[in-house]
Design a protein around this nucleic acid. Structure first.
Length: 294
DNA sequence: AATGCCCCCAACCGCCGTTCT
DNA sequence: GAGAACGGCGGTTGGGGGCAT
C-alpha cells in the first residue's frame, strides 16, 4: 500500500452525472431479475456504463422499491433530531430507524433544514442578535460519533430529555410515543448493567459504542422496524413477465465478454428505444411506487 | 424579460471495516 | 498474516430550479 487505493473502476470509461430513465429501468430490471450479489460486476452484466458504486448508490437511494419519497413529516424530522443526538452524524444508523428513508436523504434534510432550525431555535431562546445568529450558523460544526458534547447547548432546552437508568435509555418526549419511549439496554449476554446506572442528561451523553449497538437492536425489535427495513427480493414478480422480451434480452443475455464492445451500440439503440419503452417505465414506476419522483 | 443569487438534492469521492484469497 | 477486493459510510460538490432584483 502507501500509494492509496486503486480506483474502484476506470473513471474514463464510465458515465457520470444524472441517471437517465433508461439507465434506471435497466438497473432496476436487472436487479429485480438477478439480484445484486456483486456491485462491481453488475454494470457490465447489466450493460451499464456506470461504476458499480454508482449503481449501488442509485439503487439504494432512489430505485429501491421500499424507498419512501416525498417530504419529511414533522414526526420524522423530530425523530431525526433526537436520533442525531444519540448517533451524531451516523446517518446510516439514523436511517435504520426511519423505514423508507435513506441516509443520504436524512443527511440532506439535516444539513438543509434541521440544523438551521435548531440553531435558530437556540438563538431565539437566548435572544441572540442577527449578527450572532449568522456567526452561529457559520461556526456550527457537526458532532462526530464521539463528540456529542459539540451539540449546541440549546438542545438541552428542547423537548427531548434522555435518561439512562436501570438498564434503560428513556427519552421523555411528548410527540414521539413510538420512536424512543424506552430503550432497554440490557444485552442477552450481559447480566450487569452497572455501567448504565448513572442518570445523565443528553448534554453530556456519552454512550459506549457497544451499547449503541445494543440500543439499535432493541430499537428495531421494540418498534417493529426490522421487518420493514428488510424487504426480501422477489425475483418472480409477475410484472417482470410483462417487460418487453427484447429489452430483457439486451439486459440479461448479452455475454459479459461482448458487453464492452457492444456497450456503445446498446446505448445508441437505447436512445432510440427510450420513447417506446416509456410506457414500460411508467408501469414500472407505478409498480414500484416511484411515480411521484418524476 | 433578463440576470444573479441561493437553496436543494442527487451523485461523486475517498476512506474505513470486513471478507476473501 | 498480508494484501486485495468489496461494500458501506460520511463529507462534499455541482447542476438545476426557484426566487429576488
Amino acid at each position: 500500500m502507501g500509494r492509496g487505493r486503486a480506483p474502484c473502476c476506470d473513471k474514463t470509461r464510465v458515465k457520470k452525472g444524472a441517471w437517465s430513465q433508461a439507465e434506471d429501468l435497466r438497473l432496476t430490471s436487472f436487479i429485480q431479475k438477478k439480484g445484486h450479489d456483486n456491485w462491481r460486476a453488475l454494470p457490465k452484466q447489466a450493460g451499464l456504463l456506470r461504476c458499480g458504486k454508482s449503481c449501488r448508490l442509485r439503487w439504494m437511494n432512489y430505485l429501491r422499491p421500499d424507498i419512501r419519497r416525498g417530504n419529511f413529516t414533522q414526526e420524522e424530522e423530530e425523530s431525526i433530531i433526537k436520533l442525531h443526538e444519540f448517533f451524531g452524524n451516523k446517518w446510516s444508523k439514523i436511517a435504520a430507524q426511519l423505514p423508507g428513508r435513506t441516509d443520504n436523504e436524512i443527511k440532506n434534510v439535516w444539513h438543509t433544514h434541521l440544523k438551521k432550525r435548531l440553531i435558530v431555535k437556540e438563538c431565539n431562546s437566548s435572544s441572540t442578535t442577527s449578527v450572532e445568529l449568522n456567526e452561529s450558523l457559520k461556526n456550527y460544526h457537526q458532532p462526530s460519533s464521539n463528540d456529542h458534547q459539540s451539540i449546541p447547548s440549546s438542545l438541552s432546552g428542547s423537548s427531548v430529555s434522555t435518561q439512562i437508568e436501570h438498564g434503560h435509555v428513556r427519552n421523555q418526549t411528548s410527540s414521539h410515543p413510538n420512536m424512543f419511549e424506552t430503550i432497554q439496554l440490557s444485552s442477552p449476554s450481559s447480566n450487569s448493567h452497572s455501567s448504565h446506572d448513572a442518570q445523565i442528561s443528553h448534554t453530556n451523553l456519552s454512550i459506549p459504542e457497544s451499547n449503541i449497538d445494543v440500543m439499535e437492536d432493541n430499537l428495531k425489535t421494540q418498534n417493529g422496524y426490522e421487518e420493514l427495513t428488510e424487504i426480501p427480493f422477489e425475483p418472480n414478480l409477475d410484472f417482470w413477465d410483462l417487460l418487453d422480451a427484447d429489452f430483457i434480452n439486451v439486459v440479461s443475455q448479452v455475454p459479459v465478454s461482448e458487453v464492452q464492445t457492444h456497450q456503445s451500440m446498446i446505448f445508441e439503440e437505447e436512445d432510440k428505444r427510450e420513447g417506446e419503452s416509456w410506457w414500460w417505465l411508467a408501469y414500472l414506476e407505478k409498480e414500484l411506487g416511484l411515480e411521484a419522483t418524476i
